[in-house]
Design a protein around this nucleic acid. Structure first.
Lengths: 237, 237
DNA sequence: CAAGATCAAATTGTATGCAATCTGAATTTC
DNA sequence: GAAATTCAGATTGCATACAATTTGATCTTG
C-alpha cells in the first residue's frame, strides 16, 4: 500500500522496555486525571503494581520528572506535579510559540490519509462529548489532547513533537487544577475549524485559528481558584 | 534584606545532587567537544571518575539520553549522540521556530543590567576568537552557545529556556560533525547585531536578525561530508 | 586461509540490602 | 490542654550482587 515513503519505522527511544511501559502508564493516568495533582507515587507501591523492582520504577519516575509531570523531592519522594499559576502561564506561552508553527507545517504536509484520520478522530471526539459518565469524560479529555498531538506528528519534526507531547500533558494538569467550565466543549468546534484550514492547505489560517484556540483554552482558567489545593505543594514551590 | 517578594528561591530540579553534577559535567564535555560523537560512556568508568556507584551514573546518563545528547542502546550501553542529517535539520528547524520568539520577548524584557551582561559576554567571545590553542577554541564554542542561552534566560520562560538548552547542546554536536569552516567566526558580528536590536528594544528586528543568524550557521554545514564518522552509528539509526 | 563455532571477559539490566531521612503518632513537659 | 519531644515505622538514596547479554578472541573445520 504505502510506497517507499515508509520512512516512519516507529518512534521510540528504547531506554529500556519496562520502565518505558511504566512511564507511559503513569503518563496516561495523569493526563486522564485518574491521578490527581499532588498525589504521592510510592516506589514500592508502583513496583508491586507492575511487578518490577524499585530500580525500574525509579527510572520511570525520573523520566516523568524530566518532562515536568512529576516532581521529585529529595528524600521525600515523587508526586504528581502541581503546576503553579506562573508555570501554567509559561506552558501556554510556549504553546503559543510552537503550535502555530506546527499547524503551518502540518498544512503543508497534510496527506489525504491524514485528513481521513483527522476526520475520524474529530467524529470520535464529538461522540465522547455527548456521552455521559466519568470514563467517557476522561476519554474526551485524552482525545482532545491527542488531536493536538496528531497535528504535531503530521508536521514531521520529532523534536517539536516531543516538546508538544510534554506541553499537552502539562496543560492537562493545569486544566485539571484551574479549569472552570466544561471547557473542552467550547474547544470542539474549534478543532473542526482548524481541520478546515488544514484541508484547504491554508497554513496561515491554520496557524491563526490554533492561536485563538489556545487563547480560548487559557481564558477558561481561573488561577485564583486554586481548586481543592493541597496547599503543602503550593508552599513548597 | 529582601522583602516578601522572595518568590524566586532558585531554579533547580534537585532530582538529586550527584547525578545532576555528573550530568552537567558530561553535558559540558560534550558541548565543548572534549567527548566526540559516538564515544562510548561505560558506567563503571564514569563512576570511578566521579567516585560514585553505577546507580548514580545511570541516572545521569538517562537524563542525557532524554535531552538527546546521549543514545542508550539496550544491553549495549550509552554513547555520545551522533545526530543524523535529518535530526540536524529538525534541530535547526526547531530553533527557527523558538528562537525568534525568544528574541522578541527578550527585547521587551531587557533590563540595563542585562545589556551590560551581554556586552561583557560579547567582549569575552571576541577575545576568545582571537586567542589561539584548542582550549581557547573550546571556550569560544561554549561562549557562543551561552550567548543564545542568555537570550533565553532574559525571555523569562523557563520551559522555552530548557528547550533551548537542549537545542543548543545538540547543535554543538551537529556542528562538530558537519561543520565546515571555522563557522563561529562568521557568527561573531551577528551576535553584536542581535544585541543592537535588543538595546533598541526592537523585537521584530531582533527576531529577524536571529533568524538570519540561524540560517547562516546551518548554511555552513555539509551533511554529506560525514566527518570522521564511526559508521556503526550511522547504520544503527 | 577464510568462514564459522566456541567461549571467557566485559558490560549492562535488575533486584535487593543497608544506611540515612522523613513522617506521624504517642509521650512528655509546661 | 497545648506545645514540644521522642521514637518507631515507612520510604528514599545508594551501593552492590547476580543474571543476562554482548563482544572480541581463540579455536575449529572445510
Amino acid at each position: 500500500m504505502k510506497p517507499e515513503t515508509d520512512t516512519f519505522p516507529m518512534r521510540d527511544d528504547t531506554p529500556d522496555d519496562r520502565s518505558q511501559l511504566i512511564r507511559e502508564a503513569l503518563h496516561n493516568a495523569i493526563v486522564e486525571r485518574r491521578l490527581a495533582p499532588g498525589t504521592k507515587l510510592v516506589e514500592t507501591e508502583v513496583g508491586e503494581l507492575f511487578d518490577v523492582s524499585r530500580t525500574v520504577v525509579r527510572a520511570a519516575l525520573q523520566m516523568l520528572a524530566f518532562e515536568g509531570l512529576v516532581k521529585i523531592e529529595r528524600n521525600r519522594g515523587a508526586f504528581v506535579a502541581y503546576p503553579t499559576p506562573e508555570e501554567a502561564r509559561q506552558i501556554f506561552e510556549s504553546r503559543r510559540v510552537i503550535e502555530p508553527e506546527i499547524a503551518q507545517r502540518a498544512a503543508e504536509r497534510m496527506t489525504n490519509a491524514d485528513v481521513k484520520a483527522f476526520q475520524a478522530h474529530l467524529k470520535e471526539e464529538e461522540r465522547l462529548l455527548v456521552e455521559r459518565g466519568p470514563s467517557a469524560r476522561r476519554a474526551a479529555i485524552k482525545a482532545s489532547g491527542d488531536y493536538h498531538l496528531m497535528l504535531a506528528a503530521v508536521a514531521g519534526n520529532q523534536i517539536l513533537e516531543r516538546f508538544m507531547r510534554e506541553l499537552i500533558a502539562r496543560s492537562s494538569l493545569v486544566i485539571a487544577l484551574y479549569g472552570q467550565s466544561g471547557a473542552s466543549s467550547c474547544a470542539r468546534s474549534e478543532h473542526a475549524d482548524i481541520l478546515d484550514a488544514l484541508i484547504a492547505r491554508d497554513g496561515k489560517k491554520a496557524a491563526s485559528t490554533i492561536l485563538h484556540h489556545i487563547d480560548h483554552i487559557e481564558a477558561d482558567l481561573d488561577y485564583k481558584a486554586a481548586s481543592n489545593a493541597p496547599l503543602r505543594q503550593a508552599l513548597r514551590l
